[in-house]
Write a protein that binds this DNA or RNA. Structure first.
Length: 404
RNA sequence: GGAGGGGUGGCAGAGCGGUCGAAUGCGGCGGUCUCGAAAACCGUUUCGGGCGGUUUCGUCCGACGAGGGUUCAAAUCCCUCCCCCUCCGCCA
């Protein structure tokens, strides 16, 4: 959530920024609700202070106090209602975008920042199903559509990608975690995935638990309700976990193969830092993502996501998109966001600054996912359908060559 | 699955209707002492919100797992929920 005090002090600045995410009206609604709330607060506080009394009251005082009690009960009810309105209005507001974020509302409005690598020259590019070994039909028999087995050398290659990513991150000072992927509803709300992403999350009703769609939940929730030691910042975490997504609303999209499945694995980065460091950290995360793509040798481009296409928590987001020869286009393989204090405020993750505790900034980014496997297969394929695995991945346990 | 114990400040741990935002110990911070340090001693040390002043301020309100209730008054009594722990059984 946004900083209410700052927004009250500078409503025009906030309105203009939020308008870029289509939330100008929502902001005005919050301002109105907030004003109403602030009108009631002093009234309730005053009644409460009159109600306070040290020691035993005289019978006359008891009569007077009973009257105050009645009045207080009514006013408190009004306040509670006003507070609910105000909180609901506040929670509906997205994080204002960074000023440099491009305008626009769709994927196509993203601005390309740079390209790296040479596109492979292929007469007849095959896609991953024709290059690696994936068992889609058997998986469907077992689990339904949008599930897949990754088999044999393909699975070894996948593991090598994750091992490469993890060792790079550990070398960079990230602490590796294996987080729970089954979490409570409270954690989903706290990390901001509920209510907006609810339709994309698997639920285990028997136990009231939910499968996380990203280990960001586990990493963001790790320090929930804590006041961190300022000296310890920045805290850089990496998690390797399975991710579960229902892909509601993606019907008909990427239905072939494993590009978009209900279950995949991911190495995720997550940073808690001081506010003044977060934009540098954001560039750093992007740099790590690019380094990994370069280490593997995937041709890619970096895009700066348009304001209206950012999720609610992100103030800025870069995607790294790898070239997929079979589709003749770039597809997202990583994404890194600076959520500034938006997530930290909601999760109450703070650090001790000079003026007292204040929210940290949090950032998240992808280091590698199963999609990287597909990108590697496609980009290093030979005309005969075999795949020449990059040396760096062989060093991490991948076979030198993949064929079906 | 069965039986029991418990949730209080950074931690440990008292309090069990008003004088308790909360004893005490540890830790942290500042100071005295010292060439310096340790020890000792003195002081200080929760978070959130409104309003006012405005870099480390004042004032009022709220918070003792969460939410309701009783009462003039609740950390303390009642109800509901959540969480943690121990033992037994079962399964890894």
């Amino acid at each position: 959530m946004i900083d209410a005090k700052a927004a009250r002090n500078d409503p025009d600045v906030y309105r203009v920024a939020l308008a870029r995410k289509g939330a100008a009206e929502a902001f005005d609604a919050w301002l109105t609700a907030d004003e109403r709330w602030r009108e009631l607060v002093p009234r309730v506080d005053d009644l409460r202070s009159r109600q306070k009394l040290q020691g035993k009251p005289t019978p006359e005082q008891v009569e007077e106090l009973k009257q105050i009690k009645e009045e207080l009960r009514e006013t408190e009810q009004e306040l509670a209602a006003a507070e609910a309105d105000r909180d609901a209005a506040l929670e509906a507001l997205p994080n204002p975008p960074h000023p440099d974020v491009p305008d626009g509302d769709t994927e196509d409005d993203a601005v390309e920042i740079r390209r790296w690598g040479e596109l492979p020259a292929l007469e007849h590019p095959r896609d991953h199903l024709e290059l690696g070994r994936f068992e889609m039909e058997r998986a469907a028999r077992l689990s339904g559509s949008r599930f897949g087995y990754i088999v044999g050398d393909s699975a070894l290659l996948e593991q090598a990608i994750f091992r490469l990513a993890v060792s790079r991150l550990v070398d960079d000072g990230f602490t590796l975690m294996r987080p729970p992927v089954l979490v409570r509803e409270q954690a989903m709300y706290g990390t901001g995935f509920f209510p907006t992403e609810k339709s994309n999350i698997y639920e285990i009703p028997t136990d009231g638990l939910y499968l996380t769609g990203t280990s960001e939940v586990g990493l963001a929730g790790f320090h929930m309700d804590e006041i961190l030691d300022a000296e310890a910042l920045p805290l850089r975490y990496a998690a390797y976990s399975t991710c579960f997504r229902r892909e509601a609303g993606a019907a008909g999209k990427d239905t072939r193969g494993m590009l978009r499945v209900h279950q995949f694995d991911k190495v995720e980065m997550f940073v808690h830092c001081r506010p003044e460091e977060s934009w540098d950290e954001h560039e750093r995360l992007l740099a790590i993502e690019e380094e990994l793509a370069q280490a593997v040798g995937l041709p890619y481009r970096v895009v700066d996501i348009a304001a209206g296409d950012l999720g609610a928590p992100a103030a800025r987001k870069y995607d790294v998109e790898a070239w997929f020869p079979s589709q003749e286009r770039y597809r997202e393989i990583t994404s890194c966001s600076n959520t500034t204090d938006f997530q930290a405020r909601r999760l109450q993750i703070r650090y001790r600054a000079n003026g007292g505790p204040q929210p940290v900034h949090t950032l998240n980014g992808t280091a590698a996912t199963d999609r990287w496997l597909l990108a590697v297969l496609e980009n290093f394929q030979r005309e005969d359908g075999s795949v020449d695995v990059p040396e760096v991945l062989r060093e991490h346990g991948a076979p030198a060559e993949i064929s079906r």
